[in-house]
Computed example of a mutant assay.
Amino acid sequence: MIILVIKKLTPRGFRGITLFPFILLTHKEDREDKVIINHEMIHIRQQLELLIIPFFLWYGIEFLFRLVQFKNRHLAYRNISFEKEAYVNEKDLYYLKQRSFWSFLKYV
């Protein structure tokens, strides 16, 4: 994992984005924020499990499905299974040590 602070590559309204092997952050101080880093590390694990490209395909398709379902971009984003897993577990700094393979499926 390589952490970079590049505000212009991070979507507006977000503090970070993960594009394996990079975690791109908006603010330099977020490098020290264990919750944000843990959230993004969960995405690193998800991307590795799905061999990266299929992760982004699934993410995009699920976002479109949720957008039709909720008719709201923010709700669609928050209900993507990958995001649900990351948000629910981001404060548990030991989560990745005990996380089972493809755990995001519990959140579909």
Results as ranks from 00 to 15, higher is better:
F63A: 14
L51V: 09
I23P: 06
I17D: 01
F55V: 12
T26K: 14
Y77K: 03
I80G: 12
Y77E: 02
Q46M: 14
F20G: 00
R78N: 12
Y87G: 00
Q47P: 08
F55E: 03
L105E: 14
K106S: 04
K34N: 01
Y107R: 11
Y59G: 08
E85P: 13
V68D: 14
F56V: 05
K84R: 15
D33T: 00
D30N: 03
L48I: 11
F56A: 04
R45N: 06
T18M: 05
G16H: 01
Q46H: 08
H43L: 05
Q46R: 05
A76L: 10
N38E: 10
L96A: 01
I80Q: 06
L105W: 02
D33I: 00
N89C: 01
H74K: 11
K28T: 00
I36E: 02
F104S: 10
G13R: 03
D33E: 04
Y87T: 01
L9Q: 12
L24R: 14
H74V: 05
N38D: 11
I3G: 07
S81I: 15
F63C: 14
S81M: 13
V88G: 02
L19V: 14
K34I: 13
E29N: 05
H27I: 04
I6K: 07
Q98K: 10
M1C: 08
M41R: 10
K91I: 02
I53K: 09
N89G: 02
V88E: 11
L48D: 02
Q69F: 07
Y87L: 01
L4K: 13
R12M: 03
E85R: 09
L24S: 09
L51H: 11
R45V: 13
W102Y: 14
E49F: 06
L50I: 02
N79A: 12
S103L: 07
K28L: 06
E29G: 01
L105Q: 05
I42F: 12
I6P: 04
F63P: 12
G60H: 05
G60C: 12
L48Y: 09
F14D: 04
I80E: 11
K8S: 12
F65D: 09
L51E: 03
G16E: 00
H43Y: 00
V35G: 01
M1A: 14
K84F: 10
Y107D: 10
Q98H: 08
T18K: 01
R15P: 00
E90F: 01
K106V: 02
I23H: 15
Q46F: 09
I23F: 07
F63V: 03
Q46P: 07
H27G: 03
F22V: 04
R73M: 15
P54R: 04
K71E: 08
Q98I: 13
F22W: 14
R45S: 11
D33V: 01
R78K: 15
R12K: 15
I52E: 00
I37M: 04
F70R: 05
R99V: 10
K7E: 11
I17R: 03
T18W: 02
Y95K: 01
L24V: 11
I2A: 01
G16P: 03
F70G: 00
R12A: 13
I42E: 03
F55I: 06
Y87R: 03
M1Y: 05
F70M: 00
I53L: 12
F82D: 13
N38I: 14
R73D: 06
L93G: 00
Q47G: 08
K28G: 06
F56N: 06
H43A: 12
M41Q: 10
K7V: 01
K106D: 06
F63W: 13
